[in-house]
């Protein structure tokens, strides 16, 4: 089965021709060579493959590309050079949030999604916001603190 599917990825128009049941994650990583999104579980449990789809945080490993007709998709590659993306990435580095790093692009996406909606989250809100993102290395405390740091440092940025 083959279909033509058009969507926007990181601001670029994409025309995909192929099996509509393929996972969005595979299309992003393999066809488009954007390897920042990772596969940790392949079943929507770990959040390593998180992307923004029409502004919502989703796990791209359980979304068929056929469900992305007309969607606006943003991956880590689409936000990392924006002011907001930089703010989070720098806060993660400074706050010691990164160990093996495999969960981190997904965590950055979750933090971006949170701060965009809630510029001043408390600890519980941050923990809730990353509860769909599994990290085996850090124990989460430094990720939580780094997201605080990003909120603090980026203050004005997040009000926009």
């Amino acid at each position: 089965m083959s279909a033509e599917i058009k969507f926007t990825l990181n601001g670029k128009k994409i025309v995909y021709n192929g099996d509509p049941l393929r996972r969005l994650l595979d299309v992003i990583r393999e066809d488009l060579s954007l390897t920042g999104s990772k596969e940790g579980c392949g079943e929507g449990e770990c959040g390593a493959c998180s992307v923004l789809k029409d502004g919502e945080l989703v796990t791209s490993c359980i979304i068929p590309v056929g469900a992305c007709c007309g969607s606006d998709i943003k991956t880590i590659e689409g936000i990392r050079d924006t002011e907001k993306g930089q703010c989070i990435i720098n806060a993660f580095a400074e706050g010691g949030a990164v160990q093996c790093g495999f969960c981190i692009p997904g965590m950055v996406m979750a933090a971006y999604y949170l701060l965009d909606r809630n510029p001043n989250p408390n600890e519980d809100e941050i923990r809730m916001a990353i509860s769909g993102n599994i990290c085996r290395c850090t124990g989460y405390d430094l990720i939580v603190e780094s997201i605080h740091l990003a909120a603090e440092k980026g203050a004005d940025l997040w009000q926009k």
Binding site: R29, L34, T35, G36, S37, K38, E39, T75, I76, E77, R80, I88, I89, N90, F92, A93, E94, G96, A97, V98, C100, G101, F102, I104, P105, V108
Partner: peptide, 19 residues
């Protein structure tokens, strides 16, 4: 200090074997 590998990993630039 800032971990030497932090930024590349957070940006999704670091290459794991699957990449």
């Amino acid at each position: 200090v800032i971990r030497v590998d932090a930024v590349a990993k957070a940006r999704g630039d670091a290459k794991y074997v699957c990449d």
